[in-house]
Write a protein that binds this DNA or RNA. Sequence first.
DNA 1: AGCACA
Length: 466
Amino acid sequence: MSTSSQPQFRYTQTPSKVLHLRNLPWECAEEELVELCKPFGKIVNTKSNVGANRNQAFVEFADLNQAISMVSYYASSSEPAQIRGKTVYIQYSNRHEIVNNKSPGDTPGNVLLVTIEGVEPNDVTIETIHLVFSAFGFVHKIATFEKAAGFQALIQFTDAETASSARNALDGRSIPRYLLPDHVSSCYLRISYSAHTDLNIKFQSHRSRDYTNPYLPVNPTAMEGLMQPVVGPDGKKQEPQSNVLLASIENMQYAVTVDVLHTVFSAFGTVQKIAIFEKNGGTQALIQYPDVTTAAVAKESLEGHCIYDGGYCKLHLSYSRHTDLNVKAYSDKSRDYTISDPSLLATQVPGLPAAPNAWQNPQGVPVHHGTDYSASAAIQGQPPAGQVPAWDPNFQARPPYGSVPGQTYQSLTAPIYVNAARPAGSSPLSQPGASSIPMQQQQQPPWANVRQGGAAVLGQPPFYSR
DNA sequence: AGCACA
């Protein structure tokens, strides 16, 4: 009898854009896969360290013919495909695309995000970190900070290759015992790539260093104790005030855009910058004011209130530890209103006064994480030429506020709004057609109209419904 | 040396 029950034979596999590579050398890097495969076409995705032995990988070409050309070439070649002198076996994968293979931290860059596990921040000095990572090349800058994930450091190398060698050598390893205090038994490094390319270090301090600029001033207040919690009159700890507010948005039934936040928070003063990001499955935003006083007023006025009536998009506010956000001048998740020249909006020239403190917000800065290898321009926060973001075309498509009442305008991206069609009594706070939204810009945002079926509470900040 | 669930 034939063995027809076997699922697949190698000679009957159907071609696929995705190739399955096995017998790879130990810890084969994605760069090595790309080197091997890119002569045959454009690689749009990879997945390495697959299988029990982590010695298999997948490579996806842009075009089926490119995958066919690679398989065909090595099928008839006298020299087998090799990486580090080891023969690599190549077949068509039985899938036709690599799905969601990469977390952002796997996209190589010159800056590493290092989480130091099992230690208190004081156990590992910045000098120790510098020593350990200098073994792989010149360390330009280091910024350390404490996050929910623990004690972390951003370490900037000259290039992605140097960073990669450090990551490959140190990820999962411990800092040598003799560099640690006696009471620390183990200290594991978890290393991924940061999306940053250039850290902005303001001061030499116990938490940050710029080794490219020895004349950078030493920050007297950046030493111990700057961020000690303030104790209030009731003895409770109060978080230190800041000009930057952290807003958590609860029950977000409607999209909350940068523009929505800008209008809400502009009621209390000039909003300099906004960044929206996802954290712990929820949506959060950072809103930067010029001063602490303005932020404090906004916080007190808005805490617990809803952007939309009916309990939708409820705001919870706290003070951020940030003082100056590093955000893209214009993206769907961030805005820098301090850049006034429209030509700068598109290019965000590095080194402008308005682009500081890259290191302060390693997780909050919205960054495009493309799986395409050509996406590096976006990672650097600079839109490719010719792809200058435009204002939402819906803005222009809408009639000015106060046009025919009752007329409905539908947007692809927002819930349906109806001009001034708010049911009487749904909110005692805002009057139809008498909005006092303090507009900072000429553009007419879609939500300036009142949402159908309930009064939006935009526009009269001191009286938001709870 | 033989197919991924993060």
